[in-house]
Every structure is written in structure tokens, then in C-alpha cells.
Design a protein around this nucleic acid. Structure first.
Lengths: 101, 101
DNA sequence: TCCGTACATCGCGATATACAGATATAGATC
DNA sequence: GATCTATATCTGTATATCGCGATGTACGGA
């Protein structure tokens, strides 16, 4: 992971809503039990919108930020977009941060 | 550590200059070998100014941000202000982040 | 082909942050 | 007390970020 990538990750994580989303995605079955599609696809954007209480556009931007940072991945199925944590990247980030700090 | 404190810490760390300062303070004898005062006091603000290449006022603000977040401590001796890492807080931050993410 | 749904993107106002220069404050020295 | 040094604080400006509503786009179904 480059220094620029680390920077983008920590900036993405510096907003509490984005950290919360990442945390929800850790246990989708707990936080998105009502999703009609299988949670194995990930969690679809609309569900996350609802849970935050923020507008659709705002949440979409937050998800884009997390994805640009590489912290989540998305999978498009039909008209839906499902998001999942990128566990590998998150782990690498934590390792890097442990080293640098 | 409260959620608000964690938030303030990660925001403080989201600026590369502040992370760099924190990193320099990890090995003062390596990065501030030319300091006339004993490094056991910490590293004095002026030395950090020089090393960043930014203006005195800007660096002072960065140091204040790090201190507000609890990541560094300061010790005033005469007309100098010496800064040191708060290792305990940094460690606690890393632990918390490992848990939350 | 026309709608409805899901989502991304755009445009904008409000707020926060970064930076520099100027000024204020505190301590040291003469 | 005048002055020098170190640092904090203030002021202005430029840029970034957040949030929203509006619009665009892609897909599915009638």
C-alpha cells in the first residue's frame, strides 16, 4: 500500500458516518436482516441510506469515498448495487497504521 | 476513550503533516539530533517548524490539533515548548480502531 | 415504449480546514 | 524597561468537505 493510498484510507475513515457504515457491514445479518436479496451479495445502497437517515445522494457519496479508498467493494446485480467490506484492505490498513504511528 | 475522542484523534491523524510529525517524535534522536536542549524534554516547536518547511503559525496549529486530540503532550520550559508523543493514548487509539473497524 | 425503482452525479450553499502574514504574549537578557 | 527569541493567537484567503435537492442513467416490468 502506497503512502497516498494510506492517506486516502484514513481520510475516508475520518468521518463518523463512514466508520459506522463500515461497522454495519461487519455483521450484515445483524444490521440488515430485512434485506430481501441474499446478504451474500453484500448490502444494497438503499438499505444503508435508510439506516443512516441521511439523503440518498449523501450516502451514495460516502459509499463512493469508501470505495475509492478501497475499503469496500461493490457488486452490481440488476438495478441494485451491493456493498461489502474489503477485509484484506482493512487489515492491511490497520497493519500499516500500527507500523507508522 | 469516548467515541468523540476517537473521532478527534482520527481527524487529527487524517493530515499527512501531522502523521509525519508524530512519526518524527518517535525517534527524536534521529530526527532532531541538532537540538540544543536535552531531547528528554521533548522536541521544541521551532525544530518541528524547520523540518516541515511550513510557516511557524501553521505548524503551531498542527501541534495544537495533535495535542487537543491527546496524541502528544507539551512541556513548557522557559520560553520553549517541548512536545512528546503520548504513547499510551496512541496505543489506546490503535486498539480501539482495531476493534471498531 | 413508457414508467417505476435504484443509484450515481451535478450544482449549490454552508461550514471546516489549511496556510501565510501580522500581531500578541511570555520569558530571557541587557 | 527596552529588546530579542519562541510560540500562540488572530485575520484573511483559498480550498475542501458535507449535506441536500435536482437531474441523469441503467435496469426491469407493464
Amino acid at each position: 500500500m502506497s503512502s497516498a493510498e494510506l492517506d486516502e484510507m484514513i481520510k475516508a475513515l475520518s468521518h463518523p458516518v463512514r466508520r459506522e457504515i463500515l461497522n454495519w457491514l461487519k455483521q450484515p445479518e445483524l444490521h440488515f436482516a430485512d434485506q430481501e436479496h441474499p446478504l451474500s451479495f453484500g448490502v444494497c445502497a438503499g438499505k444503508i441510506d435508510q439506516k443512516t437517515g441521511l439523503s440518498q445522494s449523501t450516502v451514495s457519496a460516502h459509499l463512493a469515498t469508501l470505495q475509492r479508498a478501497g475499503l469496500i467493494t461493490s457488486r452490481k446485480v440488476g438495478q441494485w448495487n451491493f456493498f461489502s467490506r474489503n477485509e484484506e484492505a482493512i487489515q492491511e490498513f490497520l497493519t500499516r497504521l500500527n507500523d507508522q504511528l
